[in-house]
Computed example of a mutant assay.
Amino acid sequence: MALAHPTDSNVYFVPHSSRWPFLGSIALFITMIGFASWLNELAWGRPVFFVGLALVLSVLFMWFGDVIRESIAGSYNHQVDVSFRMGMVWFIFSEVMFFAAFFGALFYTRTFALPWISGEGDGAATHAILWESFSAGWPNNGPAGVGGPFRTIPAWGLPLVNTLILLTSGSTVTAAHHALKGGHRRSLLFWLGLTVLLGCTFLFLQATEYGEAYKQLNLTLGSGIYGSTFFMLTGFHGLHVTLGTIMLAIIWLRCAKGHFDRDHHFAFEAVAWYWHFVDVVWLGLFLFVYVL
């Protein structure tokens, strides 16, 4: 049974047992099975992916609704607020480690693996035994020219535009936060709405970039080590931008309904933290994937 004593800081709110984590896990499993099957060109992969995605969105909608109702009911005291903040900090840290793994794979490949296979340094024996004719270079579609020749996406085109868009969105969400703390409702809705619009614009331009890569540059997920690291890094970042944009849109609706005041608005702050994290990751992507 849920306990809620919002006026008593010594009592912690314990929610009812929730079915959403269990259902969310099933939805994510279906989504990933469908996506993996789609990548392997199985006929049923694509529809299964979209069914799983629809289930994920449905679970999020219901789960967010429960949390919003608990918040409006005044169930969250200071201790719960502190727990939420700690939870968000650890969640963002886990996301940092997630991207660090992919950046690490990119760094290891470019700095160690390719030079070793080419015979540099300690890799002379490896080069002679495994692949004597191999010559390193980046970008590389190895091993053995998988996916055929390709061209890379110029950094100073759409990637630069998207960088400016995300940097601007970081400023607009900060402006919205200041408007919320100052009690300026119209400014809050304007700046937050502009942030959502910038997020959608980023996603549209990234989809355009992907279409150009596949159709004109022959740069695909199957283009060797470069293609796989490029699409894994930028694709997962795009997924995070999508989730962040959805959360910002939900926060905009909550702001329009007056769910927050200048002193109690952690949901807004959590999404703003997440959005700034997404901005920082993109700066790393732009530098190490597109420029260098």
Rank of each mutant, 00 (worst) to 15 (best):
D263L: 11
N140M: 07
G227S: 04
G238A: 14
P47Y: 10
A73M: 08
T31M: 11
Q206N: 02
F231E: 02
P115F: 10
V96C: 05
F64E: 12
D279P: 09
F103G: 06
A101V: 13
F91T: 11
S169R: 10
N77Q: 09
F50S: 11
W116S: 07
G145N: 07
L192A: 11
H177N: 01
W191L: 06
V82E: 06
R151P: 00
G157N: 02
W38T: 07
P149S: 01
V291W: 09
S25M: 13
P159I: 02
F91C: 07
F236Y: 11
C200N: 04
A267Q: 09
D81G: 15
A207W: 10
S135V: 15
S187M: 13
M32F: 15
H184I: 07
N10T: 12
P6L: 08
Y108Q: 08
M232R: 08
A101F: 09
F35I: 15
L198D: 01
A155S: 12
F266E: 02
S17D: 13
W275K: 07
V161N: 03
A101Y: 00
Y214V: 12
A272R: 13
F112I: 15
F13H: 15
G199M: 06
H177D: 01
D263W: 07
S25R: 07
P6I: 00
Y12V: 12
N162Y: 01
G142L: 00
T242M: 11
